[in-house]
Design a binder for these strands. Structure first.
Length: 670
DNA sequence: CTTGGATTCATTTTT
DNA sequence: TGAATCCAAG
């Protein structure tokens, strides 16, 4: 300001103009490793990013940088774990470079596959109105076929639908034959292998005939399309010149193959991941994908992000120690420059209820200290672990949302409504027809199945239903009436002029009386869910898009809690560790850190234990400032009664300098 | 054939 | 505790 008379020399930097090439000053906003990733141009790259190391930030800046460098936004494809993650990234990119970024394509592998197949599936005989089967639908269909094939009533018990779905799906996700899959993971079912193979064949044929795709089909058919049709492959690959894959450690072999196919013409793949956070092997994910990335993509550049911007060192020390004994290859040690002291606290409670009371009490204290509820989360291994806590929170009027676990689209009444909508969108969808029909009193599985056969062939479902109604009118007048009503509903839905919310409304009007009949005890609660469903429907302009989303990206709120998920009310978060992936909070509680709950009894084998260890690591690294780990000593087991519980094996021998211990005591009145 | 009651069963994580 | 399966009555 002053000193105008000083004869001061101002240095002109050599690179001034080069530095101004970008609006965003990347070099001052990023650390060297992040900058390297952001400035990486062509060719494959693997970013190994520890928890909280600014992974998302790096991806966001790289997308911004590409756009600023003149890459067309629509040439960028971001494959992330959830569509929410993709959207969050895009909105952050938008803040940097403006709305150009909106035409970036992003989503899960499944939703991306859905889009490509809807547009390009015709060539391989796949109609554009195919229906996506979620796991429940898959099981229903398998069960139907299992019954038809006479496998259900055998002397030797044939595996149930969920086991069968598991075997069939796993084999496909891991790109193995059924036989190999059975040998590897289900040796006790090998006796049934011929029948299972037959069932799997029937299942595949049935789906093909009715334009039904399960989750695995989405990926497989896309891979098939890209492999078998060089023209499509070239077109798609040329179109998406830059591919970014988030959470690469959680991809399965098919997804890794898809990435290769998509990058066929240019090899411009940046994969980001953390082998220490691979927690989805039960879904076929294989963390060897990330270890083998350099072999799959020759000449891949490897960049490691080790500096942590999230957690206090005390929390990182515990995370490092938990992971230290894991067998993983890209070893890294998290460190931070954040100042502040905190030592994670291990709290021993007498029983589950004391655990809940401690958590609730500490949360209230935190609120007194000025910590918002939004900044606090309670994590647990399995969804049901929070039941007791939920009651305690309700009692104390602490609002919360629960993520993970049983979702509201999985409830019977929502599925019922969806079945009607799906039939309207794809009349060949026999699974949904059957569901809708058997809701009618007087129509069971037999009549239903016969009707379904007729309906799948008929051009005019309304007419067929009316015919059937006159047929049964003598014996079942009420059933006949219902069939006519259902026909009328279908007629109006298929004329398809209404926005989805109205169509949902029409189905609900038809369905409510049936539901009241079926659930006399708790139909009011279910009615509220359906209202919520109708609200969700208002976000969509096409029924097709809504139905695809319900299978691929269902609304994340679980049932039971407050349904106002998007409302502004401040809320505590309860979440499974899996659903907490990629998120962070100021204060984190981990409950049920007891051996036998975490890790659960069915995950006591070596490989699974490794994954449970990584899961512990993920849980710990969600916390920024404070971390409380709680476990009860007396655990009630249905079969044995109360037993003595021990702290989770992953936390057993931790140095007390890293993890402080405390136990709870009742206040004594004097 | 359908339905509803009785009995048995096994209880993780999710696109 | 709730869901899946079995069984017998209508």
């Amino acid at each position: 300001m002053s000193g105008a008379l000083d004869d001061k020399v101002i240095l002109l930097r050599k690179d001034a103009s080069a530095g101004r090439r970008f609006q965003v000053d990347y070099s001052s906003l990023l650390n060297p490793a992040q900058l390297e990733a952001v400035m990486h141009d062509e060719g494959p790259a693997l970013v190994v990013a520890g928890a909280g190391s600014g992974k998302t930030r790096t991806l966001v800046y790289r997308v911004a940088r590409l756009i600023e460098s003149g890459v067309a936004p629509q040439a960028i494809l971001m494959l992330t774990f959830t569509r929410r993650a993709a959207q969050e990234m895009l909105s952050r990119v938008e803040r940097l470079v403006g709305e150009r970024s909106r035409s970036v394509t992003g989503g899960t592998f499944h939703s991306f596959a859905n889009g490509v197949l809807r547009r390009n599936g015709k060539a391989m005989g796949l109609p554009g109105n195919f229906t996506i089967l979620d796991r429940g639908d898959m099981e229903d269909l398998i069960n139907l076929l299992r019954g038809q094939m006479g496998l259900a009533s055998r002397e030797r018990r044939f595996p149930n639908k969920s086991t069968l779905a598991e075997v069939i799906s796993m084999a496909r996700n891991k790109a193995r034959s059924l036989e190999q899959e059975l040998e590897a993971d289900f040796p006790h079912l090998l006796d049934h292998s011929a029948d299972i193979a037959l069932l799997a064949e029937n299942y595949a044929r049935y789906k093909r005939a009715r334009a039904l795709l399960d989750y695995d089909d989405l990926l497989h058919l896309l891979a098939e399309l890209l492999k078998d049709d060089p023209a499509v492959r070239r077109r798609v690959s040329d179109f998406f010149r830059y591919i970014l894959v988030d959470e690469y450690q959680d991809t399965n072999p098919i997804q890794a193959e898809l990435v290769s196919l998509l990058a066929a013409t240019h090899q411009n793949v940046m994969a980001v991941g953390d082998d220490g956070q691979s927690i989805y092997s039960f879904r076929g994910a294989d963390f060897r994908n990330i270890l083998e990335f350099p072999q799959r993509f020759r000449g891949a550049r490897i960049i490691k992000l080790e500096e942590n911007y999230r957690s206090l060192q005390g929390i990182l020390n515990l995370a490092n120690e938990v992971l230290a004994s894991a067998a993983h290859k890209y070893s890294k040690t998290l460190f931070t420059r954040r100042s502040g002291e905190f030592r994670p606290l291990l709290v021993r409670a007498q029983d589950e209820h004391m655990q809940s009371r401690f958590v609730a009490q500490r949360i209230l204290e935190l609120r007194e200290e000025g910590v918002e509820l939004n900044e606090i989360a309670v994590l647990f291994r399995s969804s049901f672990h929070s039941f007791d806590l939920e009651l305690e929170l309700q009692r104390r009027d602490i609002p919360f949302v629960k993520r993970g676990g049983f979702k509201f689209v999985e409830t019977a009444h929502v599925k019922d409504v969806m079945a009607h909508l799906r039939v309207a969108a794809n009349p060949a969808d026999a699974v949904s027809w059957l569901r809708a029909l058997t809701l009618i009193h007087g129509v069971g599985s037999r009549k239903g199945q016969r009707l379904v056969e007729a309906l799948a062939r008929a051009d005019d479902p309304e007419q067929s239903l009316r015919n059937k109604a006159t047929e049964v009118a003598g014996k079942h007048p009420t059933a006949a009436q219902e069939l006519v009503k259902l026909g009328a509903l279908m007629g109006s839905l298929r004329r398809n002029l209404e926005p989805p919310a109205n169509q949902v409304g029409a189905v609900i009007d038809y369905y409510l009386p049936l539901m009241r009949d079926a659930y006399p005890d708790d139909y009011p609660r279910r009615e509220r869910d359906l209202e919520h469903f109708q609200q969700i429907a208002q976000r969509y302009r096409s029924l097709q898009a809504m139905l695809a989303d319900m299978a691929l990206e269902p609304p994340s709120d679980s049932i039971g809690g407050v349904l106002a998920a998007d409302s502004e009310t401040e809320c505590l978060t309860l979440s499974t560790i899996h659903s907490a992936k990629g998120l962070e909070w100021k204060v984190v509680f981990l409950i049920w850190a007891a051996d036998g709950r975490f890790p659960p009894p069915q995950s006591m084998h070596v490989d699974e234990l490794e994954e449970e260890r990584r899961l512990t690591y993920v849980a710990i690294t969600r916390a920024r400032d404070e971390l409380y780990i709680v476990y009860p000593i007396y655990v009630f087991e249905r079969s044995v009664g109360y037993t003595m519980g021990q702290v989770s094996r992953f936390l057993q021998d931790i140095d007390p300098h890293t993890l402080a211990c405390a136990s709870l005591q009742e206040e004594v009145e004097d």
